[in-house]
Amino acid sequence: MKIRYLSVVAASLLVAACSSGPEENANVGGTGGQATGTSMNAPVPGSPEDFIAKAKDRVFFALDRSDLDESAVKSLMGQVAWLKQYPTTKITIEGHADERGTREYNLALGERRANAVKQFMQAQGVAAARISTVSYGKERPAVVGSNEYAWSQNRRAVTVVAK
């Protein structure tokens, strides 16, 4: 189990590193990643690892915005499909902001982003009782660095499946 998990993390690091584009040395921290399910050892179906492997676990937002763009909707549709396949799972949506805002406002902005994802999922038929939200404001960046790439990665809502 541990080995499987590590391989997923390794795959996600690889993908994230590839997607970092022109920014060099972009580091990935935090939990999760954008694994594509290419890992050799498939995680247990319906597990948090399976969710990360099969669906994109996070969506990104424009500066100071909380509306879902086309790519966010696509990712969320994948999440919804997985959640419908495993209807007993529960999730927490973590809303985050980049470092370019004040702490208190960013807490509110993170909540607004998490709520935007929750609203979308509810509209797609995921029961509200399965979804909780939490905001971390700018307290838990996924990518370190004071640059546009890091900020774009940190303005996010991450769906975490409960263990």
């Binding site: 909380s66 208190e104 807490l107 509110a108 909540e111 607004r112 709520n115 609203q119 939490v134 905001s135």
Partner: peptide
């Protein structure tokens, strides 16, 4: 919902703060 940004009132009898809920 999440409560945050607290401050005391000048007489110390109240706390004023925000609550976030539903965006």
């Amino acid at each position: 919902g999440m409560t945050f940004a607290p401050r005391f009132s000048p007489d110390g009898n109240r706390v004023i703060m925000s609550m976030a809920r539903g965006g």
